[in-house]
């Protein structure tokens, strides 16, 4: 019925598919083709190398942790920005987009300047013997930075449209603020929170520009997987670099699918709960 009324199905889908095919799929096919050059033995060798594993662990572990941190802080920030009125609210609201817009290299340099042992914050943290720059914590910091806007920006519109009646009802029934939050609001936000989490995760996994400035890049400790790809490239090991790239891509894809499943599950759970 719809199909007869609305025009442009052929052209819009055709255009989108062609564009996507040329810009994304064809290049990624080239990547997969190049990666296949290392063969099964080569892949096993690559994946069994402790250094590769350590780098993947740091990239994915760091990104998961960073996304979790972002989920918590993002929820807090989104909540405060939507629910409370205070001076400078608009300014801080605008500031949230900064990591989207600030070039990653600039972010990396600025964060390193701040958190290096002789920087404003780094010096202060050093007195507590907390090391951020040139340590795994620096990787985490940069990853939190680049992924931060995703959680806040996905949560905000939903928080705004959230039905306050439900909260009021819960409270009039004698629920405490905290209980209302945990039992009523959080479940309603869960699907959106997961979207934000997934986006922040995907962004952090592949991040290169800002991380290499602050990481220290010591193998087995603060070396991220994209850096390993770059190192392989510089030794003309295209196949190895491509293979690692494909492994990372598959990993992130699986993670995103898992998050999507969780999300579907949480939507169902919320709906059946109501």
């Amino acid at each position: 019925m719809r199909r007869h009324v609305l025009p442009g199905f052929g052209i819009s889908l055709g255009y989108a598919l062609t564009y996507l095919g040329l810009i994304v799929l064809l290049p990624l096919a080239a990547l997969a083709w190049k990666a296949s050059g290392i063969g099964v033995a080569g892949l096993l060798h690559l994946l069994s190398s402790p250094r590769t594993l350590a780098a993947l662990r740091l990239s994915f572990g760091g990104a998961l942790l960073a996304a979790a941190v972002n989920a918590v802080i993002g929820l807090l920030v989104a909540w405060v920005l939507v629910r409370y009125r205070f001076p400078g609210r608009r300014l801080f609201d605008a500031l949230v987009d900064l990591p989207f817009a600030l070039p990653t290299a600039v972010a990396g340099i600025a964060l390193t300047t701040l958190y290096a042992p002789n920087g404003w914050l780094g010096g202060w943290l050093a007195t507590w013997s907390i090391k951020v720059a040139y340590a795994p914590l620096g990787v985490l910091l940069a990853m939190v930075f680049v992924g931060f806007p995703f959680v806040v920006r996905t949560l905000q519109p939903v928080l705004e449209s959230l039905d306050r009646d439900v909260e009021d009802a819960a409270e009039s029934l004698g629920a405490r603020r905290w209980q209302t939050f945990v039992r009523v609001i959080l479940p309603m936000l869960a699907p959106t929170l997961l979207t934000g989490f997934a986006l922040a995760l995907a962004r952090a996994v592949g991040e290169y520009g800002s991380v290499i400035f602050i990481a220290g890049n010591i193998p087995m400790r603060s070396e991220i997987a994209p850096l390993l790809i770059v190192q392989k490239l510089e030794q003309f090991d295209y196949a190895g670099a491509a293979a690692l790239g494909v492994v990372m891509l598959l990993f992130s894809f699986v993670l995103l699918v898992v998050v999507a499943l969780l999300q579907r599950w949480s939507v169902r759970w919320t709906e059946s709960g109501r």
């Binding site: 290096a116 042992p117 002789n118 720059a133 040139y134 220290g216 890049n217 010591i218 193998p219 850096l227």
Partner: peptide, 21 residues
């Protein structure tokens, strides 16, 4: 004894001279 491995010569000089590491 190396706490940082920069990618290039200039990066290493900056880490040593500017960041005080």
């Amino acid at each position: 004894h190396m706490p940082v491995l920069d990618a290039g010569a200039r990066g290493a000089t900056n880490t040593f001279a500017q960041r005080g590491v």
